[in-house]
Design a protein around this nucleic acid. Structure first.
Length: 627
RNA sequence: GGGCCCGUAGCGCAGAAUGGACAGCGCAUCGGCCUUCGGAGCCGGAGGUCGUGGGUUCAAGUCCCACCGGGCCCGCCA
């Protein structure tokens, strides 16, 4: 097992044996304060009234007789810290051996114990192409799924396809009544084409009551499974969806199941839920007033939502609202229903795993529901409906902590990018995107733009490369740059998208990570001897210790990241790891070193590659051997 | 009106799950480093009332309260 963790455990044991009930430890920012520091003497001093330094000295004295494997030295520092120094010579052998041996699987931990988690992400309406806001969802969701997989969870990824709303009616209207061709102009992707005409049609409908009526009629027909409109819609949805998935796959995402909203209706997931809610008296029927004829969800018992009024679940015409459908779907996810979908195969992920889609005429039965818990990657604007669903699940007897809304802030456009789209910005420093308003930056053209920039760089560096190779590396760089850009920020913070910033491939970016890896690869490639982690030098350089420290901390990073569902934590790790490697690279020559040092440093480089490929896998940053 | 989120250097961000020692990184800017493992890199300089004011604490960017500024949500839309 991992060396540094054992050092930490040894320190904590020591503190306990010396009489500290709940030891506090922290990794100091400055190596002057040792490798692990404890302020526990402050706690004791508080009780005894003695100066903290005195208590720290007493603790240190009690530790002095212990036989220690990983702790080399203990120091007392003003005003009362205990600083522990690790025996890096011993640790190095253990850390490097494990990292070298495990390769990209280095750092994996068994915290999940095989529990089944259903992660839902993407869920873009099937009437348009993905824009960068959707890409934030995809990259976060995909990384969460990867993180859970890394930490011994069984993961399935679902994508909710909202194929029965008015947004579909609008685009169908364009094809059936406004003379738009069902085929896009040469060179335009079908999803991008739909997104474009969706914005155009929305504008027309706004100023035309006749079209508004037509739209309503089409929307109503969408729920009639025998209608022509339903069949036509299914074709359009299928076509857009296939184009959307190409973009998602390009970003490195994968899916197990596509759940269509029309099938949530068809398989009647809502019915069981509605029955239970009535039995629990959690819903009531309205006899009079503006909401006459509706079934409402009672929110009076909710600490916050009670102040905003109850929620309509069944409309007066008997149809369900979006929240009701989502609740039925959520209940299915957690296995609260006696009903299930039927499926058919939809396609194959780039990793060759199958993608299933719900289908009312499907022949396949699958177990995608009934998860231990579910994570829904949905933007912050849906906090209220998500909370209503969670609260309703609690009313249905489920543990509400099993339903996790992974909220993230939206992506908006910078002044410069908005102006490029001829959007008036006035005083604002950013502009919100809007599919309907035609204000958005799509993912594919953006990736192409970054790729072109990367290819230009690759051509200069490697004039001898084939165009296929240049093309391939350019694509990987573009994906790395975009993914890194979208997940390095805190999910609670709005990203103001600026294309020049997103296309940056220097500094704190995805390609920086890739570059460190490529450098490391070059060293191993040029070496004529094998790495040997056991040949530890008597004296380690400071940069070697920093690199060792960073490599060894990876399992703890995963633990922290999965507990807090923080993708950013792993991104930060990648940056720091690349940074300390570059420092090592500058100061510790490998190939020209004496034999003993050389084989040890080769092991360092190899271990670095293990840690890096493991963590890059989680964030979905593709690595290449040369760039 | 009610609820939620954000505010750290000119700009973009770490540091916020567990309060710990002088608050870090990138971009931009100024100055260095290629006869030595890849300069998409590295080193150094300059740049900070951690929104403001209180409070808790031996210790607060981190916890609590108030306020200011910005954003979002509160529809028989999804």
């Amino acid at each position: 097992m991992n060396g540094l963790k054992q050092f930490v455990d040894e320190v904590r044991d020591l503190l306990k044996k010396s009489g500290v009930e709940e030891p506090k430890t922290v990794f100091p920012k400055d190596p002057r304060f040792g490798d692990l520091s404890s302020p526990s003497a402050f706690d004791i001093a508080k009780k005894t009234g003695n100066p903290p330094v005195q208590e720290a000295r007493a603790l240190a004295a009690r530790m002095s007789g212990e036989k220690l494997r990983y702790v080399e030295k203990i120091e007392v520092a003003d005003p009362g810290y205990l600083n522990f120094y690790a025996n890096w010579k011993t640790l190095a052998v253990e850390i490097l051996s494990e990292a070298v041996e495990r390769g990209p699987r280095y750092g994996e931990i068994d915290i999940g114990k095989g529990r089944y988690v259903l992660v839902e992400h993407t869920s873009v309406n099937p009437n348009k192409a993905l824009h960068i806001g959707h890409a934030r969802n995809v990259c976060l969701g995909d990384s969460i799924a990867r993180l859970l997989t890394k930490t011994s969870h069984k993961v399935a990824v679902a994508n909710y396809i909202d194929d029965s709303g008015v947004q579909m009616a609008e685009i169908l209207l364009a094809f059936t009544h406004l003379g738009y061709s069902i085929n896009p102009p040469e060179g335009e992707k079908f999803d991008q084409y739909c997104g474009r005409i969706y914005a155009e049609v929305s504008k027309k409908i706004e100023s035309n009551p006749e079209l508004e009526n037509l739209k309503r009629k089409i929307a109503a027909d969408l729920e009639n499974y025998e209608s022509q409109v339903y069949r036509f819609n299914a074709e359009v949805v299928d076509r857009v969806l296939r184009e959307q998935l190409k973009t998602c796959w390009r970003l490195g995402a994968r899916y197990d199941v596509l759940n269509k909203e029309s099938d949530v209706l068809f398989f009647d997931l809502w019915d069981d839920v509605f029955k239970s809610l009535r039995e629990e008296n959690a819903v009531y029927f309205v006899d009079s007033g503006p909401k006459k004829g509706c079934w409402m969800f009672d929110l009076r018992g909710h600490p916050k939502l009670s102040k905003e009024g109850d929620e309509v679940l069944v409309k007066s015409d008997g149809s369900t609202t979006y929240v009701a459908r989502d609740l039925g779907y959520a209940a299915w996810k957690l296995g609260l229903l006696n009903r299930d979908f039927k499926y058919r195969m939809f396609g194959v992920n780039p990793d060759n795993t199958p993608v299933y889609i719900t289908d009312r005429k499907g022949h396949e039965t699958k177990q995608f529901g009934s998860a231990s818990y579910t994570i829904n990657v949905v933007d912050v604007r849906q906090r209220r409906p998500q909370e209503i669903v969670r609260y309703a699940l609690e009313k249905l007897g489920a543990d509400p902590s099993r339903y996790i809304h992974y909220a993230y802030e939206v992506v908006s456009l910078s002044r410069a990018d908005a102006e490029k789209l001829n959007v008036p910005v006035e005083e604002a420093s950013f502009v919100h995107m809007s599919g309907r308003g035609g204000i958005y930056v799509n993912v594919d053209p953006l990736l192409d733009y970054i790729k072109a920039k990367a290819i230009e760089g690759a051509r200069q560096r490697h004039p001898d490369w084939s165009s296929e190779k240049t093309e391939y590396v350019g694509e990987q760089i573009a994906v790395a740059a975009l993914r890194y850009f979208l997940v390095r920020a805190d999910p609670d913070k709005m990203i103001v998208f600026d294309s020049s910033e997103a296309a940056d491939i220097e500094g704190d970016t995805g390609p920086y990570i890739m570059y460190a890896y490529a450098r490391a690869t070059r060293i191993l490639e040029k070496s004529d001897t094998s790495p040997d982690p056991r040949r530890t030098p008597e004296k380690l350089e400071a940069q070697e210790i920093e690199l060792l420290r960073k490599i060894s901390i990876l399992p703890m990073v995963y633990e922290e990241a999965v507990k807090t569902l923080s993708v950013k934590r792993v991104v930060t790790y990648l940056r720091e790891l690349a940074f300390v490697f570059n420092d090592f690279y500058e100061t510790c020559p490998v190939l020209s070193a004496a034999d003993d040092t050389k084989v040890f440093r080769l092991a360092m480089v190899e271990a670095f590659r293990s840690a890096m490929s493991s963590a890059a896998q989680v964030v979905g940053i593709p690595l290449v051997e040369e760039m």
